[in-house]
Design a protein around this nucleic acid. Structure first.
Length: 765
DNA sequence: GAATAAATTGTTTTT
DNA sequence: CAATTTATTC
């Protein structure tokens, strides 16, 4: 193994093959390279691939690691287990879960399914959803499972009040119910695997004997259950190598326990600790900013990232009047980057919450900038897809009442709520799954619903038979037709239904691709894939598209140009973290993660007024802005203000200081609107009295200025209804700005600039 | 039982 | 604001 391309620390990481190893890998320090070389080196030293287990959090990370190892050592790497915690557990369970009293055809439930089960239980136990919201129950149960607590153990540690007692009861019910449904939730994958290993020594021994070397990526994100799993597997061999960065721990809210990485040296006193501190990703300015921000956290592992690269461009800062202007600035800068020869695929726009993406999307669309949004509503979460999946699940696992209830009347086949209720009661009385009630119809049903139910049962029987007869993708295609799922949407001709048809076709395509990728793929395997793979994992190099995603999902990625938006108290850091120092530190780590995604250029923006969740808020600048040294920043707000006042092109860049963009009082818009923290409903700017006697607020003027600058006389544009046209004139200001467009087919039409569905066709600046 | 209207209600991040 | 849940009417 040639390790000459590694720096001394990386080489140490790749060469220390025995015993516990902790690699503290700063952002962009080439940890994947060190890790992959380490694995290759292990194989060079005679360790067979099959005795290596590498655990990651995302499928994408797993795939990437595997590919890179294959590139180094060839196909022999195929025998190593390189996958996510959850997939690994699923794989272990598929083999031996019968020892725990489940059937091997178990299904994996997501949050939605969990919610359905919990709601059912609440109804049965006669508990008001307002008293115990299902979401909260889900979170508590998940929390307990992450800590490997049984309902009783959890209760013992709780406040032991009435509420906790009820929660406990729901928890117990939930566990029994899930087992009856032959279903595991996400956390169960880990919990049940641990149960299997702990209670069945031969199974544990076989895995211990097999996995002589275990690696864990993103160790700072592990929860207690994952910690235990790793511990159990490596107790004997003690060949455990964990890689992580405590400064990038951003999943505490999901049960990740940062102590796992902080205390590694206590757990393994003989551990070799290696720090990767040279950063190969970002310019000095960007790295400097990141270092300064994260330095405000207490209780970190001492680390100092450094780089050999030059200082690079200053970090651009912009303070917008509102979120629309912020988005316009982002769009504007992206087009400017385009003119400098940066392709869209090299740029990412990051935000704290998915809800913030909408405005940005709108503005990019108008500017004709191609983009892709990652995260948010997941593909498999869409109604029509979930319906198909529910059919598939019932066929694989007839005990799955939750899925059966979902599809029993989809598409409409006249099996109404009352009929379903009869069936459910009948099933419960006889202690059998709902599916059995379809063929053993209770006498209480009259002839008409009886016919509908038996028709449905025949359909399902036929489909079950077809599953064996047809190859996977053929089968799913047939199912979509025979059930009438596709027809249901094809018949109505709305924009929405057409989108659903398209989604379903895309789904069929995905199944086909899955079947092609692994021949002889079974339906069971596909369903597992659906449960464990997210859209984020599908992200290939989308050349030519700007990437929009949350800061969380950006972890592990890098882009030459990065925009961080919404740097405001209450937005980022999130309002829910303001009161809690630990949460605040996690927000700061999130900020650190965001900054360190950038390779060449970093753009940071905030809005002094923001409409979010249908409420207008005035937010103070994020504290993280203050934590970046002014010398690294270039304030574009000041430049823009100047340009707006004088009506002249932007003057020479001003360097340093937060300038007038900093602090709430300094913006004219704020001064006009009165008290800071004042929350106004509706169109705050339009409220009489607030604005009376003043010149139109600066915020609004700037916003419209940004809009107007998007469309100029002579621009070629596309209107959703009228098609292609040319801009004749742009008139008016602010909210009543209008635009006149000449269409070849329709002549001149006038629209309100703020609502017209138009897109700019090309950029000839 | 199904279609429509009205009302309510939530909005962090996700393997 | 939108999306889901609930009530109402046919």
């Amino acid at each position: 193994m040639d390790l000459s391309m590694l720096n001394p620390q990386q080489r140490l990481a790749a060469e220390t093959l025995e015993g516990p190893v902790l690699i503290l890998a700063g952002a962009g320090s080439g940890k994947t390279r060190a890790l992959t070389c380490r694995v290759a080196n292990l194989m060079d030293h005679g360790v067979p691939a099959r005795s290596i287990l590498a655990l990651t959090f995302t499928n994408k990370a797993a795939r990437e690691m595997k590919e890179r190892i294959v590139r180094l050592v060839g196909d022999q790497a195929e025998d190593a287990w390189i996958s996510t915690f959850h997939s690994t557990c699923a794989r272990i369970l598929r083999r031996d879960i019968e020892k725990l009293g489940y059937s091997r055809s178990f299904v994996i439930y997501d949050d939605d399914d969990q919610g359905a089960v919990i709601k059912e239980i609440l109804k049965r136990l006669n508990i008001d959803e307002k008293f115990l919201p299902p979401k909260e129950i889900r979170a508590k149960i998940s929390d307990a499972k992450n800590k490997l607590l049984s309902p009783d153990e959890w209760f013992a540690k709780s406040e032991r009040d009435h509420r906790s007692q009820m929660l406990h009861d729901v928890f117990v019910e939930y566990e029994t119910r899930l087992k009856a449904l032959n279903a595991l939730d996400f956390d169960d994958l880990l919990v049940k695997t641990l149960e299997l290993l702990a209670d069945h020594p031969p199974v544990l021994e076989s895995y211990r004997a097999r996995f002589q070397h275990v690696l864990v990526d993103e160790y700072q994100d592990t929860n207690y259950a994952q910690y235990m799993l790793v511990k159990l597997l490596t107790d004997r061999s003690r060949n455990l190598c964990v890689v992580g960065d405590d400064d990038q721990s951003i999943y505490g809210w999901r049960g990740a326990d940062i102590r796992n990485i902080l205390d590694f040296e206590k757990d393994y006193p003989d551990a070799t600790v290696i720090k990767l501190e040279q950063n190969y990703r970002s310019t000095a300015n960007i790295l400097d900013a990141a270092n300064q921000v994260i330095a405000h956290n207490a209780g970190r592992k001492e680390k100092a990232l450094w780089t050999e690269s030059g200082e690079g461009e200053p970090i651009k800062l912009f303070c917008a009047g509102d979120e629309r202007e912020e988005a316009a600035w982002v769009a504007d800068r992206i087009r400017q980057l385009g003119r400098q020869g940066e392709s869209y695929g090299r740029t990412a726009v990051l935000y704290r919450t998915n809800a913030q993406s909408r405005v940005i999307e709108e503005m990019l669309m108008r500017s004709g900038i191609p983009y892709k949004v990652f995260g948010g509503q997941k593909f498999y979460d869409r109604k029509e897809i979930r319906d198909v999946v529910a059919y598939l699940r019932v066929i694989v696992n007839p005990a799955d009442d939750v899925s059966l209830k979902r599809i029993i009347n989809v598409p409409k086949r006249s099996i109404g709520d009352s009929t379903v209720q009869e069936l459910v009661n009948h099933a419960r009385e006889n202690d059998m799954p709902l599916y059995s009630a379809l063929s053993d119809i209770p006498d209480t049903l009259s002839s008409r619903p009886r016919k509908c139910v038996s028709d449905f049962f025949l359909l399902m029987t036929m489909l079950t038979a077809l599953k064996e007869a047809l190859p996977l993708s053929e089968f799913v295609k047939t199912l979509v037709e025979k059930t009438g799922l596709m027809e249901q949407y094809q018949r109505e001709d709305t924009e929405e239904s057409r989108a659903r048809v398209e989604n379903m076709q895309e789904f069929l395509g995905a199944v086909e691709e899955f079947a092609r990728a692994s021949e002889n793929a079974t339906l069971e395997e596909y369903l597992e894939n659906v449960a464990l793979v997210t859209d984020l994992d599908q992200q290939e190099d989308e050349r030519g598209y700007v990437t929009l995603m949350t800061l969380h999902s950006a972890k592990g990625l890098e882009f030459p140009n990065v925009f961080m938006t919404g740097l405001e108290e209450g937005v980022f850091p999130s309002g829910r973290s303001l009161m809690d120092e630990n949460r605040m530190e996690e927000e700061r780590r999130l900020c650190y993660v965001g900054i360190t995604r950038a390779q060449k250029r970093l753009f940071i923006s905030r809005a002094s007024q923001r409409m979010l969740y249908n409420q207008v808020n005035h937010n103070a600048p994020s504290r993280f802005l203050e934590e970046i040294p002014p010398r690294l920043l270039q304030d574009e707000w000041a430049e823009k203000k100047e340009a707006a006042f004088k009506g002249v092109p932007q003057s020479a860049p001003r360097r340093g200081g937060y300038g007038s963009g900093y602090g709430m009082r300094s913006t004219p818009a704020m001064a006009d609107l009165g008290k800071p923290r004042l929350t106004l409903h509706g169109d705050a700017l339009g409220i009489p009295g607030v604005q009376k006697g003043f010149a139109p607020s600066k915020a609004r003027e700037l916003a419209s200025g940004a809009m107007q600058s998007l469309f100029r006389k002579g621009d070629r544009v596309m209107h959703r209804k009228f098609g292609e046209g040319q801009v004749v004139a742009v008139t008016g200001r602010g909210a009543d700005a209008r635009i006149q467009i000449e269409f070849t087919a329709y002549g001149v039409k006038e629209f309100s600039l703020s609502i017209a569905p138009i897109v700019k066709l090309e950029d000839d600046e």
